[in-house]
Amino acid sequence: MSPRIPFIDPRYYQIAVLSTLVVYGTTTLGFGIHWENALSIVVVALATQYLGTVLLTRSSFDPLSAIITSLSLTLLFRTDVALLAALAGFIAIASKFVIRVRGKHVFNPANIAIVSLMFSSDRAWISSGQWGSTTISAVLLIGLGLLVLTRAKRAETTIGFLVAFSSLLLARAVWLGDPMSIPLHQLQNGALLVFAFFMISDPKTTPDTATGRWCYAALVAALAYVIQFVFFIPNGAVIALAFAAPLVPLIDLLSKGLHYQWRPSTAISQTSKGVSNA
């Protein structure tokens, strides 16, 4: 990072973007987001973050990540049971404090909450088709904006995933003799883009080295493809991430790098209970 450019925590940008998407989705696209669900998620996630920080770490309370997780959950996770929404907020944040390997949490918080509840309850789902094609280019632009603003730091996962997944879809279309309008249509999926720019990209839960991140992105894309086109389960990417996440510590073992810090000034020594691999 160039020292002349003042550092702005990229999470502020993420919060702004995700909030905008929540508002737009609710008012214009008819996402059917229940306000009591959104409220339950935010309150429970922040409370869990606070308690976790106070009881389990020596760091100070930082609400930003919990807010991002809450917004991601509000955007992607659907249920008509407010209790399940609250549970999603709890699972997401608690997983950060509980499921850790070598000072790094294993699962993307929103992702593990969504996947675990989708598999354990028939009242929880993802509405991946709800974005409409006009929104897609906007989401894409916003996502690219994020990459630029964060100076493409650790953008390998997003780019790697999108390239690998697109290639697989294109290859499938070529093999089947399908028109290109089909893979293009499959890629114009708002939930997929939100996943690529705001979920798999989470620097805290991706491998520490660039090589590791490229491999990880390709692996998630391959798994997503298998889930969606071999097992015919919708939302392959979101499910794939939950299954691939436990491999991150292994990838980190094989290729050693530095844990990501949201605020560079806090320095490595201050990671919550963390011991850097450096």
Partner: peptide
């Protein structure tokens, strides 16, 4: 058995 059906690859609009 459980609930509403929707399309995953197109927008389902009320």
């Amino acid at each position: 058995r459980t609930g509403r059906v929707e399309t995953t690859n197109y927008r389902t609009v009320r």
